[in-house]
Design a protein around this nucleic acid. Structure first.
Lengths: 229, 229
DNA sequence: GAAGCATAGATCCTATAGGAAATGCGATCT
DNA sequence: AGATCGCATTTCCTATAGGATCTATGCTTC
């Protein structure tokens, strides 16, 4: 067995498919699985030293995230990288959902939320900004956590599902795989503005600051993609 | 083999998991699988006369739609029915996404879209309105098609994913399983208003008419749930 | 040298077998 | 009577085997 259980006292029985899912996710974000390449079920099973059955289940779940695409009888492939146009579409979609999340979350805000948001910002400041995934993973995690907290505190399971469906919260970073973190200072400042609106309890302002933030991300990502090309 | 291929000339090889997925979907919407009941993998495999493997894969995909919930090592259960509060949340989420879809779709509208929307409305008028699933399936299909057309013509894959993630387009009807169609006349009128806005090319009006429609659905569903209780 | 075919391998898909844990039920003990 | 223990069944989970299809490589033939 290649993947061991955590040795924390009671052996918490784990489902192998979950480990496979995690392993695939890391491999995808790390860039070991490049966009467009096929993901063989049997091959991945051999590589992870498990049987094809849990691999199949993990891939079925991954498909819903958009990270991989499935063609019946043809297997799975890693989803292609975002084009600049698709990236703009993703930001447009975020502009639809996340400002609404911010508005609603602000109505339910309490000191617990603002404390957690502040912590996420602090972690963002402290995170390394290197180009490799191992380095900017902490950055990504803190950024994702900030937005997810807001989505969760909107207290609407369907909006949360919609937020999750964007999936780009993970995948968009694959676009910048070779660039690393380039806009940390802007993001930190914009996150802080959002936090201020939450602390003031001004839902309309929170909505607007979220719009400003995502517009900023959109413009900066467009600029980066131009530089890159 | 319990499920046969379609006999259309070339024997299009089909994946069994897709058939299982469809069968489960119909069973869920039909009410044969009641909310909260466990869905045994082995049991379902016996019932459909297939092996557990494709059932497992179909359930993994279904989980992403919210129709079933999974607990590791405990199996799958049919998701609970919506409470009135959750139904209101679903409508609030639709109010975030679908007006934006309408606005964007209107910018890409052409005669093909308006023709298809008109067809969907005509089908809505012609659909039977009985209480059983077999009867109102046509109604549901036409209603769903109207909204999906708009989501697709918004021409943003991420917004489409978000729309799909709501999943309520299917599941919400399970709430009314015992009621059948009660607001067809309102829905037809409101759909027609949206279509008019599309024909006029007025994106802002289309957004507003979509808001009006979903607000109407929300209020009527609230009323129905009160009558029912 | 180039085209066509055959065979071998890889891959997807499904079925089957078996281990591990949970659930249900009846018998036994206090 | 009520609680507890033990056994059988069910269920989930993983591994393995085999059929069908696609791909690729090498050989044969023109």
């Amino acid at each position: 067995m290649a993947i061991k259980n955590q040795a924390s006292g009671g052996v918490s029985r784990q489902v192998l498919a979950d480990h496979v899912y995690e392993a695939l996710l890391v491999a995808l974000m790390d860039g070991r699985l490049e966009a467009g390449t096929p993901v063989s079920i049997d091959g991945m099973a051999r590589e992870l030293d498990v049987s094809p059955t849990p691999v199949r289940e993990a891939l079925a779940r991954l498909e819903a995230t958009g990270m991989v695409r499935r063609m019946a009888l043809r297997g799975y492939r890693v989803a292609p990288l975002f084009s600049p146009e698709e990236l703009a579409d993703l930001m447009d979609a975020r502009l639809v959902i996340e400002p609404a999340n911010a508005f609603m979350a602000c109505k339910h805000a309490d000191t617990q939320l603002t404390a957690q948001l502040e912590q996420a910002i602090e972690d963002l400041k402290a995170a390394p900004r290197g180009p490799s995934f191992a380095e900017f993973r902490a950055y990504w995690e803190a950024d994702e956590r900030f937005h997810r907290l807001i989505a969760e505190f909107a207290d609407n399971q369907f909006l949360l599902s919609a937020y999750n469906a964007l999936g780009g919260q993970v995948q968009r970073f694959r676009f910048f795989g070779g660039l690393g973190v380039t806009d940390a200072d802007y993001a930190i400042a914009e996150h802080t503005e959002i936090l201020k609106a939450f602390e003031a309890g001004d839902a309309e302002l929170a909505r607007q600051k979220m719009i400003d933030h995502i517009e900023g991300v959109k413009q900066r990502s467009q600029h980066d993609s131009e530089v890159r090309s």
